[in-house]
Design a protein around this nucleic acid. Structure first.
Length: 734
DNA sequence: AAGTGTACTTAGGACCCCCGCC
DNA sequence: GGCGGGGGTCCTAAGTACACTT
């Protein structure tokens, strides 16, 4: 398998060689990486296929005949991608100590278009109001908010949002404006206009779609690439954030405030001294300043007006800067393998310390190590949402003996909002084997936590004698560069590796198909996600989808019951006329087909906005009809058009059993996963080399577990041998 | 030792597009 | 061949870390 694709890749490669000999050299270098080729080559094959069609078409329009089997021309993006792939930073020279680069060149930041007024008037007290473009823009920001979304859909946050928005809106309106009270504002006309625009955008032709993409590509080619030490690198966020209503998460005290448009005058650039200063893309404007700081990886920086915080334009995740940082992060975490024993030994001893500070440091370290909490820096709740981590936990976040079991119960429920206001709610049984085996000291931690809470008000901090800086300084005694966050990386990676190893030892493992192995990989990934409390909220669409599945299961069960009844009936030899038969769906189907055809015709003909909207609406209606038809079909799927034989019924009951169990599995799977987000740990916490090695050992193509983006981000990890381990030795490599 | 600012990593939600299924 | 769901990407908010100041 690996050989096949390798050969194909090489052939393709040779063809290119004719045109670009340079490319060949560098590419073959990358494919010389042991085994990485098996994955990356098939990936290239795939993306090559994808690119085939448009490129072939292009050849046609150019007048050249597309030869059968001829290799397609690479487009600009692909050529650049090859150029970037050919640079293997891990084999290249390091920049001088303390520097991240020698030379850096880029085009600066792309700015959003200036505001184009739509002229739709909002109403105040039932009457239309005239607004200046700036005022209209602000009103439109509010109108763009989903009334049922996470900001306005929740009464508590809606109140904050509206107050903040209206304060800022009033400032934009000026003192003498008629608009005085939010309650009399009606943004509905603008909201409707925006919805219409959305519909129109949905109805665009393929040609327009292509043109839009080309426009976006133009910006990307200009701003999306940077030249660092002579190598092309991708820029991450080259589009300046557009103005809007600030969408802070949770109960952010500033949500709804107007986030203002950033002008070039607020933007500092970082380029090398010798590089050309990027031309400011906004006519009549100029950059704030141009710096030459090789110690930083940022390309541009500016301040946002909500919290006066710095924002940066940086290279993309697949760049050498990010790759280097990432690798050293994982190496540091691996180095913790070597030091973890002495650290644990030390904090276990200190848990019993008489000194309060020592005791708190030890307890906090235990919590960070075992419960994978973040360190929890101090926050100003007037400026930011009230969220906490380990050091900022308050007495009110612990519920001792939550189930009131009394006795020697050592359960504590931790309930608090963490980063992004995600709820952490777990009952920890500090007396359990899990936290006490191998002298885990769970019981001691329980006593300590209780003691730290004693005599304090609910709103007081549990760890009142320490802070993140002290904790991190304490950790540095054990290992250079160690800080609290390393524990999350370490424990995530360690957990993944152990879970995967456990599964590989299971009887019959090697006989599993790649698909089955991937399921097990995802199960291991899920363990990590749960450890790190990576959640996602369940959308309404998902909720209804789950309901639909469960309703379908109910229907199937009823149908099965009916089938059994039919069988009984057939066995009894009674009057067959009583057996229910399938009702005709012909007329219904005809209606649906007609409606669909009509909608399509409308869509093809539509030239004005009104026609486009009407077409989209007709299309949606037709689809709704089709769904109804499908539902109706489903309710009758178990029946026949004429009286069935016993065998037919028996067979169908079997089929239905299969359907029911498959759907129940599906539902369970979806339900188990609906609140867990696997991506975050994959992107940020689990050492990719564990995954790459696992894939190689188990003959699972890497693209089954890493998307293209992830493979690019982790290009530095692709060459590890199958037996690679996340261990202390790796950490020693620096 | 606390406060402040800078620079980076980590995070979930919105939106988009593609692929498997009918 | 068309569609819907789900994965992938984009967006930018929200953390951590640490140097430096007071």
């Amino acid at each position: 398998m690996a050989d096949d694709s390798e050969e194909e890749f090489t052939m393709e490669d040779n063809e290119k060689k004719k045109k670009k000999p340079k490319l060949k050299v560098k590419l073959s270098k990358s494919s010389a990486k042991p085994d990485a080729a098996s994955s990356s080559s098939s990936k290239r094959k795939k993306s090559g296929d994808n690119g085939a069609k448009p490129a072939a078409k292009k050849a046609k329009t150019n007048g050249g005949k597309p030869k059968k089997g001829a290799l397609k021309e690479l487009d600009k993006t692909e050529r650049l991608a090859f150029a970037m792939q050919s640079f293997l930073w891990w084999d290249a020279d390091e920049p001088p100590p303390g520097c991240q680069w020698r030379t850096m060149e880029h085009a600066g930041v792309a700015f959003p278009e200036t505001y184009e007024p739509h002229g739709i008037k909002m109403k105040y007290d039932g009457k239309e109001v005239d607004l200046t473009p700036a005022q209209e823009e602000a009103a439109t920001f509010f109108a763009a908010m989903d009334p049922d979304g996470m900001h306005l859909g929740n009464p508590k946050t809606a109140k904050i949002f509206i107050r903040n928005f209206f304060d800022d809106f009033k400032t934009v309106l000026g003192k003498k404006h008629v608009i005085k009270s939010f309650d009399k504002c009606d943004f509905e006309p603008i909201r409707q206009h925006l919805n219409e625009q959305k519909i129109i955008r949905k109805a665009i032709s393929d040609q327009e779609k292509k043109a839009n993409k080309e426009d976006r590509n133009k910006v990307m080619f200009k701003f999306g690439y940077s030249l660092v030490d002579g190598h092309i690198e991708k820029v991450g966020n080259y589009n300046m954030e557009p103005p809007g209503a600030f969408r802070g998460r949770g109960e952010h005290p500033k949500m709804g405030k107007l986030k203002s448009r950033v002008l070039p005058e607020q933007v500092s650039l970082n380029v090398s001294q010798c590089a050309a200063v990027p031309i400011c893309p906004v006519p009549g404007h100029a950059w704030k300043d141009v710096r030459h700081d090789p110690r930083g990886q940022w390309l541009a920086t500016w301040k946002e007006n909500i919290n006066n915080q710095s924002k940066y334009m940086q290279l993309a995740a697949q760049s050498s800067f990010k790759g280097k940082s990432d690798r050293s992060k994982y190496n540091k975490a691996a180095l913790l393998c070597k030091n973890i024993d002495k650290i644990r030994k030390s904090y276990k001893k200190d848990l019993k310390s008489k000194d309060k500070e020592t005791k708190q440091l030890a307890t906090a370290t235990w919590v960070i190590d075992r419960l994978a909490l973040r360190v929890g820096g101090e926050k100003d709740t007037d400026e930011e949402a009230d969220t906490v981590g380990c050091c900022s936990l308050r007495v009110e976040h612990l519920h001792i003996d939550p189930n009131e079991e009394g006795g020697d119960n050592k359960e504590i429920e931790l309930e608090f909002l963490g980063k992004d206001s995600m709820l952490f709610k777990q009952t920890i049984d500090f007396g359990s084997q899990l936290y006490n085996e191998n002298s885990g000291m769970g019981s001691q931690v329980y006593e300590n936590l209780k003691k730290f809470c004693k005599g304090k008000k609910k709103t007081e901090e549990i760890f009142d004698s320490i802070n993140p800086t002290m904790l991190n300084n304490h950790l540095k005694q054990f290992m250079d560069g160690l800080s609290a966050k390393v524990f999350r990386t370490y424990n995530a990676s360690k957990t993944l590796q152990e879970e995967l190893r456990k599964k590989e030892k299971l009887a019959g493992w090697s006989r599993l198909s790649p698909a089955e192995k991937v399921i097990e990989y995802n199960n291991a990934n899920r363990e990590v996600a749960i450890l790190c409390n990576h959640q996602r909220s369940v959308s309404k669409a998902q909720e209804t989808q789950l309901e639909n599945i469960s309703n379908k299961i109910d229907t199937l069960k009823k149908q099965k019951k009916m089938l059994k009844g039919i069988l009984k009936f057939l066995n009894s030899g009674k009057d067959n006329k009583k057996i229910p038969l399938k009702k005709s769906q012909a007329s219904m189907k005809e209606d649906v087909d007609k409606a669909l055809a009509k909608a399509k015709k409308m869509k093809d003909k539509a030239s004005t906005n009104e026609e486009k909207i009407a077409a989209t609406q007709a299309d949606e209606k037709a689809k709704e009809m089709r769904r109804e038809l499908a539902d109706f079909k489903f309710t009758q799927a178990h029946l026949w058009e004429r009286v069935p034989s016993k065998d037919q019924v028996i067979k169908r009951i079997e089929t239905w059993n299969g359907k029911i169990s498959k759907m129940e599995m599906d539902l369970k799977h979806k339900d188990d996963n609906k609140e867990v987000s696997l991506g975050t740990s994959k992107i940020n916490y689990m050492d990719p080399r564990i995954t790459v090695a696992w894939c190689k050992r188990n003959e699972v193509p890497i693209e089954r577990v890493f998307s293209k983006t992830l493979r690019d981000k982790f290009n530095w990890a692709m060459a590890v041998p199958p037996a690679w381990e996340f261990s202390a030795e790796i950490g020693l490599m620096g």
